[in-house]
Amino acid sequence: MPCAECTCKDKITKEQWEGLDAVVAKHKSTRGSLIQCLHEAQELIGFLPIEVQKRIADGLGIPVADVYSVVSFYALFSTQPKGEHEISVCLGTACYVRGADSVLNEIQDQIGIKAGETSKDGKFSINVVRCMGACGLGPVISIDGQTHGRLKSDKIKPILEKYNS
């Protein structure tokens, strides 16, 4: 179950809650504004934990089941906080045929989490993307927006070590 051990209350600042209430208030009277509201909430807080979804549901006057329905449908909404370093692994066709899956597996093994998750120490999060437009460099990943190309699984460890210090 996602977000079962929710501790988000401690992670969200007072300012963020206030900002969230303002976002909800702005969208309150517009029907069909849930997705936009979730976007802005995620931009503000970084992720959409249970408490945030409940606050949005209350504010918009819709069932929480409806909010979670949208959050759980779209891959771009996350119920977990992003890590300090965000790793995007390209699984587009070009990268894939050049072995992106073994690169992804290596990253997952090294950090000990699956794509879509955040490591316990909050250091890394991994997500899968479709194409970065850098097919010539495939397999390619980006960490905090910086691209690393022509990867093989044995190149992963030294790259991650740079971010681990």
């Binding site: 069932p63 929480v64 409806d66 979670y68 329905s69």
Partner: peptide, 18 residues
């Protein structure tokens, strides 16, 4: 509105929130 579809594709399930 106690239940809705949660998740996507093959994983979709009709369930309460979370």
């Amino acid at each position: 509105g106690a239940v809705n579809t949660q998740g996507r594709g093959f994983e979709t399930v009709v369930a309460p929130e979370f």
